[in-house]
């Protein structure tokens, strides 16, 4: 389904021009295979957020190439036409805070994405319930976001990221607001979901306790990534 996961080569991003131009990314290379969960770590100002925005098709890179599954997204100034549809159908997002829509119940928060893509309501809700069951929050399906615990909200957010079966999920500090036990639970879920749905997952994190769980880690510093093998201890 997801072909080659996500692959970027020589990705650059320059803000501004002339003397005041800032190179936030200076030729980033990265590849994440389907079913793989990798960590992306780096200090503040290293270019993590810029890379995440490029990967999430929110901003255009200045140069470089990006392939998602079998689809070319950017190639040296060229890009696919409809980034909005790309984000909706091919990229899943999990944020630091769950950012669930407060006026939709749990099921509809998850089902909203397929609905936006034109999937009939009942089918979208069926997909949502399936994922909620997989994430063990099906019993809160009719609850409103404010009625959920932090861990439950994050699981619902993961379900939302997965519901359109994207080839890649970008998780931005998904464990930041959680205690150790819940943070580990989230990482375990991400690993399970990556395996089950053959999805490439990139986890941006500062969280020391989850860094050892990754088998591969990308360090980013001054706009350049360095790949290294992680401890890969996984999650008990």
């Amino acid at each position: 389904m997801s072909g080659n996961g996500i692959r970027i080569e020589g990705l650059r991003k320059r803000y501004g021009s002339g003397d005041t131009a800032v190179d936030a990314l200076k030729g980033v290379d990265m590849q994440v295979a389907p079913g793989e969960v990798v960590g992306l770590i780096g200090p503040s100002g290293s270019g993590k957020s810029t890379l995440l925005k490029c990967l999430g098709a929110v901003i255009d890179p200045s140069a470089g190439r990006m392939t998602l599954g079998d689809e070319l997204i950017y190639d040296e100034g060229w890009r696919v036409r409809d980034l909005r549809a790309l984000r909706r159908d091919r990229i899943g997002f999990v944020f630091q805070a769950p950012y669930l829509i407060p006026f939709l119940d749990v099921t509809d928060n998850v089902a909203l994405l397929p609905m936006l893509a034109g999937v009939p309501n009942e089918e979208a809700r069926s997909r949502a319930l399936e994922l909620l069951s997989a994430l063990d929050v099906q019993h809160r399906a009719r609850a409103m976001p404010t009625e959920l615990s932090g861990g439950e909200q994050q699981r619902v957010a993961i379900a939302r990221g997965l519901v359109n079966r994207p080839p890649v999920i970008l998780a931005d500090e998904p464990t930041a607001p959680l205690d150790s036990e819940r943070a580990m639970a989230v990482i375990r879920i991400l690993n399970e979901m990556a395996q089950r749905y053959d999805t490439a997952i990139i986890v941006v994190t500062h969280d020391e306790k989850i860094i050892p769980t990754f088998k591969r880690i990308y360090h980013i510093r001054d706009g350049v990534t360095h790949e290294e093998a992680g401890a890969g201890r996984g999650v008990e």
Binding site: V58, R84, A85, L86, F93, F95, Y99, L112, L113, A117
Partner: peptide, 16 residues
């Protein structure tokens, strides 16, 4: 505003 940003990020059309 935050929910709108999320909606736009996950691909909601401007007209929606």
């Amino acid at each position: 505003i935050r929910e709108i940003a999320v909606l736009k990020l996950i691909g909601t059309r401007n007209r929606t």
